[in-house]
Write a protein that binds this DNA or RNA. Structure first.
Lengths: 344, 344
DNA sequence: GGGCGCCTGTATAACGTTGTAAAAGTCAGG
DNA sequence: CCTGACTTTTACAACGTTATACAGGCGCCC
């Protein structure tokens, strides 16, 4: 049987509320009393019942983190950061995954998957602005990632357009002249994707081709999707001398195809990925990648959610840009210089 | 302001309990009444307050899943399975990670990280049997993975010894005679690790060496640890013709080192990993691996936890063996036969 | 030394839900 | 038309916690 405040109160010979005061570190409790009560607490092994506390306070101490998929190490690592950041504020993280499917994302954003949370951090893929506009839910929502909505919600991301341009710029600086893009979203309005836009802008600015034949749309964002997309481009007979991939797994999938077709990376085709997952540092050819500051993104996301729980004036919805940098590895080595070992 | 049963009851002109009965699909409610109440529910947008429900019922509808680290795709994928399996029973998953550190694992097993859960699924690394023996917590606990305790808790795992033996057997069948093991736990009683034991047993049975010079202990289980362990073995001058790694990331890390040192896989050194993560299917050399039935493990874990919440007699603690199979890929190709493409 | 205010501790009422038990309603049979 | 058996609905009391308002006790100042 679980012990409650009542039991402790009886044991210590004081009122329930006094025990509660001790538990909550209420200011006006004499040291002697605090000591006495604490002993009863320890003796009985009392632990607060959170459900009751939540009912009373209207807070649960839980925030939800909804990601497209955990299989992508970027999201897995991000989840780890968020869990730790939340723990630092005594919050616990409920994890959900949407598969990047709009229907699931709507469900999550409306709070139907988890109705027990104080706040929600959502990394949307297919979700449309309209889905959020008539959101009846009143739990604070913070958005993460590449999608860009003009809505009054906090949004934490890196500047995807600029990051993509930097990646493409890097390829151009290497002397590459035909840069393919792998991982455009199939069946969606293309400009909504900031990374494709950055790719296009930078190529156009350099007077290089950015036609549709260089873009491979995909359904998912895993290794297999990257491999399929790469294969598709090669089948058309096109021979780009560089590839910019939507993310690292896709880049790695593409490299696998190139390897099997006897094309060398980076000599024949240079590749840049996105997210800088660990895996990219340990292939036969290590992967150059845009490295978002995951640590900052996770921390900022948690802080943004919690800032809206303070009770006071909710802060203005804000768009926060996290840092990023381009990490150069073997997949874009300029010449035959032997790179350093694995680690970047 | 959030609407409660009281508001709906007032709106529909019935008692609170009747609304509750409708919400809970209580048997004895006339269709007409059900209809009327339902309309009020819809009109007001009522959603049950879970905190209150939990307080009343003593259940929260949340189970915790504590894994060593999310960065390892095996655990990430497992988490995805568990989340889905739990959702199928209307349960929600609170995710925690322990870093494989004993201290954290103890905290989790004692319920100090999340005190709001109905059950706990824990995949321990360093946790000792004694830590569990004086576990005062009464939430059901299910253990996952390679650690083997003689304690009255459900334990879901594959037969790690047999799986390891199968992996080593495969290498021996290939004609390899000196099989190293990468990823023994540094500073812990070695026999506790079933995979090392399987490795040793199979080699001994075949009359092959299984001395300490072939075992590389590590602190972690990531790519970098595998790379470091491989490098360490090679530094001793030893030249095994095969490697069995504790898991896939370590195997991939090891392959990176071999590649840089000009050793060919599988010609010079064959490699088998463990866990069959996606990543292993897309390297320049695809990775042979022991593939546990993650789907089954996740599902069984959830079912085992929930079975202990039924209220009736708790079932006997049981040890459940999930399926596994050895997936052969390029890293152990018998001859120069060109493997099929990436996908296994 | 009495009154005032501050500091501690206490009784009680919520928070929103569901289980229990009893009240009200329905219907058939005598 | 009444009785009894059953069905449907209701009132009320929990679950364990914290907020509010209040009752003592003590010291301080006049």
């Amino acid at each position: 049987m679980r012990v409650s405040l009542k039991d402790v109160a009886a044991h210590a010979g004081v009122s329930i509320k006094t025990v509660s005061n001790v538990v909550n570190n209420y200011q006006h409790v004499t040291p002697a009393m605090r000591e006495r009560v604490q002993q009863s607490i320890d003796a009985l092994g009392y632990r607060p019942n959170l459900a009751a506390r939540h009912l009373r306070k209207g807070r649960t101490g839980i925030i939800a983190l909804a990601l497209p998929e955990l299989g992508n190490p970027y999201f897995a690592e991000l989840a780890a950061v968020v869990i730790d950041a939340a723990a630092a504020h005594d919050y616990i993280v409920l994890l959900d995954h949407t598969g990047g499917r709009r229907e699931q994302e709507v469900l999550v954003s409306q709070g139907f998957r988890a109705r027990v949370i104080d706040g929600l951090i959502l990394s949307p893929i297919e979700l449309e602005a309209d889905d959020l506009r008539d959101r009846a839910e009143n739990v604070p929502l913070v958005l993460l990632g590449e999608r860009d909505y003009d809505l009054p919600y906090d949004h934490i991301a890196i500047d995807n357009v600029a990051a993509a341009r930097a990646a493409v710029r890097h390829l151009i600086d290497l002397g590459r002249r035909e840069v393919a893009f792998i991982g455009a979203r199939r069946g969606h309005s293309e400009p909504a994707q900031l990374r494709v836009r950055g790719w296009r802008e930078e190529l156009s600015a350099a007077g290089l081709p950015a036609d549709d034949g260089l873009v491979a749309a995909t359904d998912g964002w895993g290794h297999a999707d990257g491999a399929a997309a790469m294969a598709r481009i090669l089948e058309t007979g096109r021979r780009p001398d560089a590839v910019f991939a939507y993310n690292d797994p896709m880049a790695i999938g593409a490299m696998r195809v190139l390897h099997r077709q006897g094309l060398r990376v980076p000599e024949d085709i240079a590749i840049v990925g996105f997210d800088d997952v660990v895996e990219g540092r340990f292939g036969a050819v290590t992967l150059t990648s845009v490295s978002p500051d995951k640590e900052a993104i996770g921390r900022l996301a948690v802080e943004s959610v919690l800032a809206r729980l303070g009770g006071g004036e909710p802060p203005e919805p804000r768009r926060v840009w996290a840092d990023y940098r381009l990490v150069r590895r073997e997949s874009t080595l300029g010449r035959a210089a032997p790179g350093r070992d694995g680690q970047d």
